[in-house]
Design a protein around this nucleic acid. Structure first.
Length: 580
DNA sequence: TTAGGGTTAG
């Protein structure tokens, strides 16, 4: 065999840098440094392969006299998948200004990968888009799919959609990418609607489609849509796909159907860490800490190594169920047994756990001993606990800290106003009201979603924008009347913190979004079925009590997912046992 | 002589 062929064969089977260095030595000894094929194979291995070495690739590249497009592509690709994707752009610029070669479809694909990884590159995306048009690659489906993803990752979803719409040919990957872009941008309604377009385009679907759609269903609580997708999983034969099954578990858990989540879990023949995490997190947000612990122990027995998400689910469950000793034990175990550094979210769970249980000094101690004691989120959590336990003293400490950290938001003022109101400190309440007004602190708009007839209906406080608004308000009056007959008394808003609630700051006598969603749901769904509502804020005291009485008066199960957990209302009681 | 997609948290 001739020497070049022998070296090329060796490179073909090369698995690691140690072997590559030996081959490189052979290349030099035989005088093949300038052999184009050999040089490119060497370069590509170092730059791109997992066991390569990017700095070594750069040295090789610098020794190439007139690097051609594939050589530039290797370096641009190598950096795009490294922790330094910005370097890809640097080499692309060098390629454009210093050499006489031109970028091709591969160059753009790798370059766009780098743009996708680095945020805040909106301008760069536009520039690359212009170059793609100039060089005649705008009809290349792979290049355009990457362009769509780069725009979307840089928060230019409309530009991404335009590129998609103007593509002459779209394949399945391209459709999947567009759905994933919407889903990952948090535009879940759009992702689900977009699937309607995909269905009529006859490109079919695969596991990637299903996973993105299930993720969006999970986020908006679209159980019926999710159930339809479950049918596709069976029909199209994705029963063995771990990703699809994990997404199904997550969807069922987030849509309030823990039984179905368990059913999918037990059916799986192969599981991974995410499978266990989806179950543990699902149980955690339902307040089933003991069950979450049981799954965690089974996970360890099955030989899986937990990660930081596992502990978030576990701690969240302990916090919602008031399992203080267990929660603290697992929090400490994170580092001592599994070498995992608790993050801000884990500290948040601990503050929430101690705070909710009334151990406010301990919660304060956790914050002060955490590495993130200057994070407003932890102080806000403490403030929330002070509201529950009517503690003005620590509440004011937390509020002062939030002011110092300039992290104050309207919700904080509402919480402290609530604490003052409970303590009958009317001056305090009006001070908070004034603060929101004069400092122009922004309130968070409250939303509630409900899925009826395969459509997600969204409501805000006092919403009158819905097509059937008259019917909804009529139904709401009837519901209030029937709830009152079984004992519901509206929590007075005047002079209390609720007149400053997160949802309708400054207003009283309004109808929170979930009341409208409940009215719509009861008007449009058959008797005996349960209602699923998703809310972006925490449910307020009045709405919590209202929903309990509605569940009794109408004999309907109402499942509300609020910002932090699930509430299952049935026969006048809630699964959180009023501990939330 | 090289190319594009998915889950849990945030």
């Amino acid at each position: 065999m001739c020497k070049t062929k022998e070296i090329l064969n060796l490179l073909q089977g090369c698995k690691n840098m140690k072997k590559l260095l030996k081959i490189h030595a052979q290349v030099i000894l035989n005088g093949y440094q300038d052999h184009p094929n050999i040089t490119h194979k060497l370069l590509n291995f170092c730059a791109v392969s997992n066991s390569g070495n990017l700095p070594y690739a750069i040295i090789l590249f610098q020794h190439i006299k007139n690097p051609q497009t594939p050589a530039w592509n290797s370096i641009i690709r190598g950096y795009s998948q490294s922790p330094f994707p910005l370097e890809s752009l640097f080499y692309y610029n060098q390629m454009m200004f210093q050499s006489l070669v031109f970028p091709d479809n591969f160059t753009f694909t790798f370059l766009l990968k780098a743009c996708e990884k680095v945020k805040k590159l909106e301008r760069k995306c536009c520039e690359v888009h212009a170059s793609i048009i100039r060089r005649g690659y705008i009809e290349d489906v792979v290049v355009c799919t990457n362009l769509v993803r780069s725009y979307a990752r840089n928060e230019l979803i409309n530009a991404a959609q335009r590129v998609f719409d103007e593509m002459p040919v779209r394949d399945l990957v391209c459709w999947n990418s567009m759905i994933a872009c919407y889903s990952q941008a948090g535009l879940h309604d759009e992702a689900l609607k977009f699937y309607g377009r995909m269905r009529v385009s006859n490109v079919g679907l695969d596991a990637f489609t299903l996973v993105s759609l299930l993720s969006s269903c999970a986020h908006v609580g679209a159980l019926k849509f999710g159930f339809q997708i479950h049918k596709f999983v069976d029909e199209y034969g994705f029963l063995e796909d771990v990703f699809v099954n994990n997404a199904l578990i997550d969807m069922y858990a987030k849509c309030g159907s823990l039984d179905w989540a368990c059913w999918v879990f037990h059916r799986m023949l192969k599981r991974d860490v995410s499978t266990w995490n989806c179950m543990i997190v699902g149980l955690g947000v339902h307040g089933q800490g003991d069950e979450a612990i049981s799954f965690f122990e089974q996970m360890l027995q099955a030989g899986f190594h937990p990660n930081s998400i596992t502990f978030l689910g576990l701690l969240c469950g302990c916090s919602h169920q008031g399992l203080i000793e267990e929660g603290f034990k697992y929090f400490q175990m994170m580092n001592s047994k599994f070498g995992l550094q608790p993050g801000i979210k884990h500290f948040g769970c601990m503050v929430d756990m101690f705070g909710r249980a009334g151990k406010l000094e301990k919660a304060l101690d956790i914050i002060q001993n955490s590495p993130s004691q200057d994070d407003p989120v932890l102080w806000r959590t403490l403030l929330g606990a002070c509201k529950i336990h009517k503690n003005v003293e620590i509440g004011e400490v937390a509020m002062k800290k939030l002011v110092d950290l300039r992290g104050l938001d309207a919700g904080d003022c509402v919480l402290l106003a609530g604490i003052y109101a409970e303590a009958k400190d009317h001056q305090g309440v009006s001070r908070m009201r004034k603060m929101i007004k004069t400092q122009g602190i922004k309130t968070t708009q409250g939303w509630s979603w409900i899925e009826v007839d395969d459509t997600v209906h969204k409501f805000v406080v006092d919403d009158k924008s819905h097509h059937d608004t008259d019917e909804i308000y009529m139904k709401l009056m009837e519901i209030i009347h029937r709830a009152t007959l079984v004992g519901y008394v509206e929590e007075k808003t005047s002079g209390s913190s609720d007149s400053l609630s997160e949802e309708c700051s400054g207003k009283s006598g309004s109808y929170h979004s979930e009341k409208l969603a409940i009215a719509f749901g009861l008007a449009r769904t058959p008797e005996g079925t349960s209602l699923q509502i998703v809310k972006n804020l925490r449910v307020c005291k009045d709405c919590h009590s209202f929903t309990k009485f509605v569940s009794k008066a109408f004999r309907r199960e109402i499942i509300v997912r609020d910002r932090v957990r699930f509430h299952h209302f049935k026969d006048g009681a809630c699964s959180c046992k009023d501990y939330w």
